[in-house]
Design a protein around this nucleic acid. Sequence first.
DNA 1: CTGAAAGCGCTTACAG
DNA 2: CTGAAAGCGCTTACAG
Lengths: 340, 340
Amino acid sequence: MKDELDRTAQADRVPTLDDVAQRAGVSSATVSRFLNNPKIVAEATGERIREAVQRVGYIPNALAGGLASSKSRMVAVLIPHLTDSLFNDIIERMTEDLTASGSNVMLGLTGTSPARTNDLIRAALARRVDAIISTGPIGEDMTDCIRRSRTLFIQVWELPENPVGMAIGFSHRDAGRDLARFVASRGYRRPFLVTADGGRARLRRDSFIEEWQAIGTGEEPHGTLVDIPSRFGHARRAFAELRRLDPMPDVVLCGSDYLAQGIIVEAEAAGLNVPDDLAVMGFGNSPIAGEMRPTITTVDVDSSRIAREVMALVRRHGAGEDIPHNSIDVGFRIIARESA
Amino acid sequence: MKDELDRTAQADRVPTLDDVAQRAGVSSATVSRFLNNPKIVAEATGERIREAVQRVGYIPNALAGGLASSKSRMVAVLIPHLTDSLFNDIIERMTEDLTASGSNVMLGLTGTSPARTNDLIRAALARRVDAIISTGPIGEDMTDCIRRSRTLFIQVWELPENPVGMAIGFSHRDAGRDLARFVASRGYRRPFLVTADGGRARLRRDSFIEEWQAIGTGEEPHGTLVDIPSRFGHARRAFAELRRLDPMPDVVLCGSDYLAQGIIVEAEAAGLNVPDDLAVMGFGNSPIAGEMRPTITTVDVDSSRIAREVMALVRRHGAGEDIPHNSIDVGFRIIARESA
DNA sequence: CTGAAAGCGCTTACAG
DNA sequence: CTGAAAGCGCTTACAG
């Protein structure tokens, strides 16, 4: 009795499980059980505990919980950027899903630097996250580290030859090839590519050029490199560059819909008609692609399927299942709209 | 010796501080010291530890570390959405800053629901985050909870009457008022507002209307509500709506630059000239505002200053300083560009 | 259905 | 500069 008062008096201390237990007149083990799985506790006991939690204003310490149970209920999500990112859709879905199921997400911004990606992976492993979902390039030296940790590792948006863990994505080589065929079939002859210099973009670009040469029709593609293909602002520079060419390209292939949107704006401001004077293609089928005027012809990737597959893996892994090192090809499809 | 071999044999166990200590021939306390503050350990010892860390592939357990030190080195960031959010800029800066200084961010997506915000705040408190940075509305009942936890709580982009912790933002009432004056001074007479129905947007809207009536010139403002003011896609609906009015509005005030961009696209697709036939104003001075054609007249909020102020508070709080419950007014300014 | 107790892997006064 | 030891606040077999 005395002890209870003493504890109550210490109003400045953050209440612990023991405080709740004391108040409810049960052991802390029972409180823990109730909090994690109410059904396994007698109803009357549960009621008392619920009340005690309220009364003392208990907020569980997830660090202690995670340490004891060795599950953090936290998932790391690693993306290059936040602004105009083609991944935002996937991230948003996953974050909502995870939150709904009691997990939280640790956000990592990798930029285009593998070093930063590695640091973030290490940080995520240190926090003992249940899974790491990565959209960037992973340094060779991390592979061991990740494997030994037995953390679920999911690479998204690409299908590497030797995935570190799981990979859910599509073939960027195939995308580049199909893009070339599509452009040719539409009768365009002078393509201009605006892409990033990084892994996936380069794959698409190389394979586009290869296929274009194989088709053997029209000019060699021109192109320009940008650091981040989703920055609307790059459009001015790219447009100025292609404008200088003679003859001018008849179609621009952009690394993202956001860039495509920028090119369309620039083209129209310059008095050109899209697609008649200049056709424009995007990538990613982001929400704006269908809303822009003209609507943007682009490559659709099934974000909601990706998010679903990722979540299914996270859930299975959480349930103790062993996840194989494997790849899921979700494919892609070119969506012909007005801009090309 | 025997023990050491035994431990080494258990290759499937995740290595702990003790494994490193044993390998380096020091106590785990020393390893811990070295990892957290290399300078306080003798150089030779440090070298041996560094090597041992490498050899066993040690990755510290941040859950245990956080529990023992009662600092999680984690900051929660709560925003409504990821897509086309005016906060992305701030978030990006802060995330990079935090990562650079060894913290990580927990991302929470609140939508427009106070209930979800509350859940996320509770989750953040459970993880014993060092700070919570929130851009959304907070339920009354959370205030106590937050205060007692002594977690640094920062509300961003607004200046509530009674901030829960710190607030860094600007007066949305003043913004609405100044917007009205600006629009009037430019000679527009028939404004149309496209805003969200939520807290801040409503404040601006109400104060715009109030001031507009006070000025006593022109028509009563028309308007339309949207759920998320940054969705490019809302532009079609809003534009269709204002198109039906007779006489048509001469200026549209949008809740975000992204929406403004959408309205401009719609207007031009309909053959209207912006700003001659219809002027358009954005909000937030996001990166696209200056890149769009026509460039978008908008309200600039100093994101980098906000990010800096937030980071300074987080740092001071981390250093043990007591942060007062206070407000920092970073102001705003209307940037006149081509669209209005 | 519930309790006593060991243990999760660190950090940090305290002592030397 | 370093070590022994207590403690952070939970979870979870093990018993009953």
